[in-house]
């Protein structure tokens, strides 16, 4: 049985109701993951972090022996290190360069969207804007932490036989080893998202990279020199991003937590200002 109704001319049909899935947290995380890994620069920057870490670890381990021990990371004075400390030092030194690399990656992950115009696509898909930023933060943090962990654990495993031949041993799961290694990986991820915040604020690759490197590299050096002449500058030194970060990842320091909190404040400020500006500004 059928009722025949005359078909309406197409122009008379005036409603088209959209159907299907909408925005979701998982969708945004997936989108940012696709974005991160569909750029060649991500592959070569993150591989470089691992390669540099492993390379420096292996080179250092050949140069080291039980008697030469190491040097104090802050004063540079040669000191005798425990076996565990030596393993940590060797496994994490290369990550210092990795920090610079992920700082650049962090800035580019958003400034690249501004310079190419991609940001318009991103923000029309996520008109409330902030969920897109948080998804970027989570994805960047996750992958840089993972890469940091691969670098330090990989370095540890690589130098194990080399140092082992020199009668030095350590266990990865010794808290004196694993905690500093995790701390280093964590700081690497923190630098990346800090840089992401700066990149969002400045919306420029060159400006963002210059600012991040200025804050992490230049500022501590300049202030260290100035502190020789101006006394109170020495008091603010511990609150600098890199100095606090070094405190945080230095093994067996009681102030590690303090360093972590100071670094966290820097990140919160960077991302907080970034979020505020992203929400307010015209794209």
């Amino acid at each position: 049985m059928s009722t025949v109704t005359p078909s309406q001319p197409s122009a008379a049909r005036t409603s088209f109701v959209p159907t299907g899935s909408g925005l979701s947290i998982t969708g945004l995380l997936r989108s940012e993951t696709i974005k991160l890994w569909s750029l060649r620069s991500t592959y070569w920057t993150l591989s470089l972090v691992v390669v540099v870490s492993l390379g420096i670890a292996v080179l250092m381990s050949f140069a080291m022996s039980a008697s030469t021990a190491g040097f104090d990371p802050t004063t540079g004075a040669p000191i005798a290190l425990e076996s565990a400390q030596m393993f940590v030092l060797v496994s994490t030194t290369g990550l210092g360069l990795g920090q610079l690399i992920v700082a650049v990656l962090g800035v580019l992950s958003i400034s690249g969207e501004y310079s190419s115009g991609m940001i318009k696509s991103t923000l029309t898909a996520v008109p409330n804007r902030l969920p897109a930023l948080w998804a970027k933060v989570v994805v960047l943090f996750g992958f840089t932490f993972l890469v940091g962990l691969i670098s330090v654990v990989g370095s540890f495993l690589a130098v194990l036989p080399i140092l082992g031949a020199k009668d030095l041993t350590a266990s990865l799961f010794d808290t004196e080893v694993i905690l500093p290694l995790l701390g280093n990986a964590l700081f690497l991820a923190i630098i990346a998202v800090f840089a992401l915040g700066i990149g969002t604020i400045l919306r420029s690759s060159a400006g963002g990279i210059a600012t991040v490197l200025g804050i992490t590299l230049l500022l501590p050096t300049v202030l260290a020199v100035l502190s020789i002449f101006i006394e109170w500058i020495a008091d603010i030194m511990p609150y600098l991003f890199t100095v606090a970060g070094t405190t945080m990842i230095t093994p067996n320091t009681m102030e590690s937590w303090q360093g972590f909190l100071i670094v966290l404040v820097w990140v919160v400020v960077s991302l907080g200002v970034a979020a505020l500006l992203l929400k307010r500004r015209d794209a």
């Binding site: 959209p18 969708g27 569909s38 190419s116 318009k120 898909a125």
Partner: peptide
């Protein structure tokens, strides 16, 4: 799903393939 918009041809990251660009956009809305 409400509005499809073409603002200008340069709303795409130049280092990404067309396929991956569309996949990333699609992922936001599953």
């Amino acid at each position: 799903r409400e509005v499809g918009v073409l603002l200008d041809a340069k709303a795409v990251h130049t280092g990404r393939s067309a396929y991956n660009h569309l996949r990333a956009m699609a992922a936001t809305h599953s």
